[in-house]
Amino acid sequence: MSMDTKRIVTASINGAEISVMADNRMSLLEMLRDAAGLTGTKEGCMTGDCGACSVMMNGRVVDSCLVMAAEAEGAEIETVEGIADGKNLHPLQRKFLEHAALQCGICTPGFLVSAKALLEKNPDPSDAETRYWLAGNLCRCTGYQQIIDAVRDAAAEMRSSAK
């Protein structure tokens, strides 16, 4: 907590270069929420068990509660705020809406980020593959099926528009 452990961390967050003053105990989640004001990424546990804090870091999904802010120096970070293209929702977001894949919505940012990463790796995931990939994201409201359906439906749409 002492002042001498503070340092400036500069990262690209959703394409914008952002520098924040971070102490050596600050997590990436806190850096995003408290320092950068991007509160779309949620805190569910701070122990890496719920996935609510999922963000992309250099192309990989991470639990931002487990990553130190200092590790984000020079990294490319993508959060839920960066998924839509301006006012145009990403296909995943649209399909979540159409499939009623969100209820309270606190888990939704984490699911969207994880699902987007999945579709970048595997454009045509099966039901089982989708469930496996998303098993680290907990949702207490939905029972998951609408989420799985939304992700696979978005995948189908993205495949056909990529043709």
Partner: peptide, 16 residues
């Protein structure tokens, strides 16, 4: 849900 877009884009304000 009428609040879906807010929740899908990270804009919905929860207590924290």
């Amino acid at each position: 849900r009428i609040d879906a877009v807010e929740k899908l884009t990270g804009r919905a304000a929860f207590a924290e």
